[in-house]
Amino acid sequence: MAATQPLLNRRMITDWLGIAPFAIFSVMFLIAPTVYLISGAFVDPNGNLTLKNLVDLFQPSILAAYIISIKVSAASAIGGAIIGFALAAAISLGGLPSWLRSAVLTFCGVASNFAGVPLAFAFLATLGRLGLVTILLRDVFGFNLYGAGFNLLSFLGLTLTYMYFQIPLMVLIITPALDGLKREWSEAASVLGATPWQYWRMVVIPILWPSVFGTLLLLFANAFGAVATAVALTGSSLNIVPIVLFAQIRGDVLHNPNLGYAVAFGMVVITGISNFIYIWLRMRAERWQK
């Protein structure tokens, strides 16, 4: 015993030394910055513990930013999820030629990564005041898009833009789940007398809902954290959380660093909750894949 004890210790030391670089990296550049901000949200400028910063989040301008952010994220996530699901169902179950399936999947891989500043440019060129669609509607159909109240730098415009990466992301995540539906299930259901609708209601939807709902939350978090597209599209004219935070980091527009931390904390809470539910639902969905 006495002889094995130090040996065991030495092995444990090498074990821990082996992951030390990763541990140091993740503490320094991931965990510490996050913890610093989160703890900063709970103190006042003099270092006293307080909940005032969190309460201050509910002042009208910041609350409005959260609300519009949540609205845009939710709308683009729901829209992206519905259209993305329809598209995934079409290529997975619709009996379309296989070249089309791989073409759609490859394009989705591209489009889901085509976010940020270039995406904003593309939509300005499409639906901006001088965008192609705006001009075509005006010159060919005599319809004044902006006269009708549309504005790209608004809730609707931002939602429409975000859906450009939300739909492909949904397709990429949900297609494997749809492919996991075995043909025998639908055949078994139909010989047992079920109509296609009964099969969807009693088998497909219960199997898929954790994946679909989970992905919806992932899309929500994805849109909520998107900064570049919003900044490039709207400058600072639209009051959404990432833009408020961006401006705060640039120049303390809130005149209270700790309130800035609270804004960041709020973002982490919202994206964190949606991601954790996503991961939990995903594990639930995988239970059936065995």
């Binding site: 025998e184 078994a188 259901a189 009693m202």
Partner: peptide, 26 residues
């Protein structure tokens, strides 16, 4: 018609009893 498949094809979201009840339920 009753059919049994090579890969079982039980509905993974239902218990044994619910699987057996499926045809009667619809």
């Amino acid at each position: 018609i009753g059919m049994v498949f090579q890969a079982y094809a039980l509905f993974p979201n239902m218990t044994v009893a619910q699987n057996v009840a499926f045809g009667l339920k619809v």
